[in-house]
Write a protein that binds this DNA or RNA. Structure first.
Lengths: 243, 243
DNA sequence: GCAAAAGTGTTGACTGTACACCCATGT
DNA sequence: ACATGGGTGTACAGTCAACACTTTTGC
């Protein structure tokens, strides 16, 4: 064992400064009952004309989470992100070949939020795409390794709905249990039994809290009771998706 | 909306090159029945004399995973990592203040492996610490934000044992179900009912595969049947920890 | 009244847990 | 024989999915 045990980290120099760090954000929402993601059309090379995840370089003195929130603000045009919005770190992608310009390490974030309209003056360059149309065989390929990041993000979102109350991040308050159920159905791509769904949600402590009022009826059918997000951060028991 | 929608990323320059990227590895093992983690004593500033996670700068042309595996090899002195060894990306820490030398973004990895002996010529600088002793109020603080990373890693490991067959990464093959049960007990800090544990494991498809032989009896008691890791990557149903 | 959506009740299958009991070995 | 750890059986309680049924609205 003639290997050195002095870690490089202990060097007082900071090593190679030729690495860039970016954040890329996968903003998911439910639009017309379908799971959708915000993409930006790239104007310049590389991958000019390709659609990409919103993202950019992390600035000096800026935390990674702050960079992700800034990118989201800039790309959606929404200054104050919706209150129930969920944003969490997803994964970091650092393959040496992932960006032709050089070494770029990208920290990706997963965002879940209600359906918002992106600014009309940028509608051609920034818009939501449904997950289904991006999955089509003839869909245009995304820039960089963003297809991979998007796939990982959707898988994480699907799993997270089981054990965390993040589905409510997709809806505005107050909401009905049918609203919430449609979120689960859209993200998981299944249909759920409404009565059983109701019991599961209400029996999970602090998942939702009843408002005590009912929604305005919408063209036939009994008006639904209204709820707000509860204080739970983890779901016990979990909302397991059907096999 | 007078905000610019031209993403910075589309600049052909690569932005700020004054950011360094490191990997830090949380290598967990079970030693003397206790969950333990490999730490390295720092020789230089900052945090000279403090214990830290093994880690270092990512090299040119090296993927993040490769850097993590290299760090592990260098610090453990083990050239070929054990076959069942599990290594996965954990989370990226990029607070601007986390390293006094400048902007350092650290991609952390979680490693789970069997109990190995670190090289004796480095025993003073590199050794395993039990989770319990690091939790003690009078424990010496770790370098940088490594306490936080370690806490996140243990929480991830505890959760991952529920839905992935990673417990078998801690044991050498072939192993008995009692070996496997002791892993769960050590990581979760609980005691499990042996008969029910057996049924759960065996009823989960491809979690383990029977060898067909029995272990040499060890001082009294019926010899246990031997197993190897199965082909499953996800556990259906999950091995839920007791409430 | 009829359709539609919300909400309640009920049943039968399945799962998890506790624990009694039997098996195979060392001393 | 007895202690020790491995392995099987069983019975009870809790959970979950399926679906019949009632409630409240619009037309």
């Amino acid at each position: 064992m003639a290997r050195s045990f002095a870690p490089e980290r202990e060097d007082t120099s900071l090593g190679h400064g030729d690495t860039s760090v970016t954040v890329d954000v996968v903003l998911l929402t439910i639009r017309n009952g379908k799971l959708s993601v915000l993409l930006v059309k790239r104007a310049m090379e590389p991958f000019g004309g390709h659609w990409a995840l919103p993202g950019g370089f992390v600035r000096h003195g800026e935390s990674l989470g702050d960079a992700a929130r800034r990118e989201l603000r800039d790309k959606t045009g929404v200054d104050r992100l919706p209150g129930g919005m969920h944003l969490e770190q997803l994964k970091t992608y650092g393959d040496p070949e992932r960006d032709p310009r050089g070494r770029v390490v990208s920290v990706s974030y997963l965002g879940l939020g209600p359906d918002i309209s992106v600014p009309s003056d940028a509608s051609a360059e920034t818009r939501f795409w449904s997950w289904d149309e991006l999955q089509a065989p003839d869909a245009s390929p995304l820039a960089f390794d963003h297809k991979r990041i998007l796939t990982d993000a959707v898988e994480r979102a699907r799993a997270k709905l089981e054990y965390a109350p993040v589905a409510s991040a997709f809806v505005d308050e107050p909401f009905t249990l049918a609203d919430l159920r449609r979120i689960y159905e859209a993200v998981w791509g299944v249909s759920l039994d409404a009565p059983n769904f109701r019991r599961k949600v209400l029996s999970t402590p602090d998942f939702v809290t009843a408002v005590g009022e009912t929604a305005a009826p919408s063209g036939g059918g009994r008006p639904a009771e209204l709820y707000r997000r509860g204080s739970a951060t983890l779901l016990h028991p979990a909302m397991l998706r059907p096999a």
